[in-house]
Design a protein around this nucleic acid. Structure first.
Lengths: 261, 261
DNA sequence: ACACAACTGCGTACAGCGCAAGCAGTTTGT
DNA sequence: ACAAACTGCTTGCGCTGTACGCAGTTGTGT
């Protein structure tokens, strides 16, 4: 189970001298080409042919750089994320750092909403993606949380942001080019129209009714702010409990609920 | 923008009398067939041909029931979720209800991890999916949270669970058939091997090192417990602040952070 | 200098995909 | 009786990922 070649190249680890013609393109070029393709037509337009054509090659030439489409997607994904701006996790309290890290991820995903549609069968171990994780870990410095909890926290934050972006796109509040649309509440109204007269799902119908006759709002920003606030409050609670009882630092059973399913 | 026909049928809304031969299958049969296909080979094996063959039809016959693959996926998804067990949101405190709702979703997704791999371009307005949302809204009854916040909370919870299941599958801690594998920490060790000698990403390398020489643990359960605990703590904070200051009930600017990006 | 190995890029080929169009047979309303 | 509406099917098109093999280029070993 050696490290795949495209990863060696991405991490700039030269593997001795190479014979044969110089490669016509670098992997970063491939990633950038894929990003250009996806920026135009979304994640599902990333095909071997499309990326190859963008580079002026044929699709089969691409297989000299990646062994299959999954690797191509990983390369494109890494390029799409780009490097994490490290100043987002410098200075301030841990809570400020974590919040700004989370908002930086949200900004990156918002700029290219198709990122969350890329189907990957394994977490990519690429420089930029891991760079974001590294910055996230750094943001939690000084909290006293054990490493495992820090990574779990990053997963929670990242999961929320990813779902938020996906939902915003699906509801039309976020356009493919990253610009935002006003919330016309058509979704809530559609739910009302569909569910209202069936008599089923009374709780949801009531909620939809309550929402649809309020004043207009910015779905994207409101949702993001709410989620981040909830998550940070939860993390604060966690950090404070670890600080008041440092014996819990390596004991994660403290928060395990009794009714595991 | 009328309601698509497959939705009308899913919601049992008969549309007058129909001429011609009786349909050979019902949509629920189609959904069940799709679930059987995906149970065998994952979400990406759900094709028109595969589902049709499972039903003893040709692929083109399926188009008499759904207009495109997206609708087929929505039908399969609805069947895969199944109805929400309503007793999970009855009795107890709101926190207990919300926790058991979240764990019920986790159980449903864990039983069929391919659910999170289904690519949908719009949130499905199908009975079971909306039924889960309805139950989630009901779980929040009595919290005093405004409807919009309740839906936002459900999105946060659902987003976490989805990402948790995806991550568990990708790391090998959750198998395709829903059974769980022990955490061999191969991912952390892979990260260490790759990042360790590059010298970059020191925070992540330190975290991976700290994790990989601890005792073995159950990634799936630990991660799920941690996330749920963090989220519920955050929601509790939210509920308490609304209760102590009911004027915030319809004012969501209270938690908006100052540094929107 | 020369052979060989390694490498790049390309052309061809194949199975599978989503789906458009059209056709035969069945059921219903008029 | 007749037409409208419906089901299930066959055929076909353009697209996908990728296996295979070949020509040309470059470095290494003798």
């Amino acid at each position: 189970m050696a490290v795949p070649r495209y990863l060696e190249v991405l991490w700039d680890r030269p593997s001795g001298t190479r014979r044969g013609p110089k490669p016509g393109v670098g992997i970063r070029d491939i990633g950038a080409a894929g990003v250009r393709v996806a920026d135009r037509g979304g994640a599902e337009t990333i095909s071997m042919k499309a990326v190859a054509t963008e580079l002026g090659m044929t699709s089969m030439s691409l297989y000299r750089y990646v062994t299959n489409k999954d690797e191509l997607l990983a390369v494109v994904l890494d390029e799409a994320y780009g490097p994490c701006p490290r100043d987002t996790v410098e200075g301030g309290t841990w809570r400020e750092r974590v919040e700004s890290w989370t908002r930086a991820i949200a900004a990156a995903l918002t700029a290219r909403p198709w990122i969350v549609d890329i189907p990957l069968s394994a977490p990519p171990a690429t420089p930029n993606v891991l760079g974001w994780t590294d910055a996230g870990v750094a943001a939690f410095e000084g909290t006293g949380l054990p490493a495992r909890s820090v990574l779990s926290s990053l997963l929670v934050l990242d999961g929320f942001v990813r779902n938020h972006v996906r939902q915003s796109t699906q509801l039309g509040a976020l356009r493919a080019d990253g610009s935002r649309a006003p919330d016309d509440r058509s979704y809530e109204k559609g739910i009302l129209a569909l569910v209202g007269d069936t008599g089923r799902l009374p709780a949801l119908a009531a909620a939809a009714a309550e929402i649809s006759h309020g004043e207009a709002s910015d779905f994207y920003a409101d949702e993001l702010d709410y989620g981040i606030a909830v998550l940070l409050d939860g993390l604060t609670h966690r950090v404070e409990s670890v600080r008041s009882d440092p014996s819990r630092e390596t004991d994660r059973t403290g928060y395990a609920s009794s009714n595991r399913l």
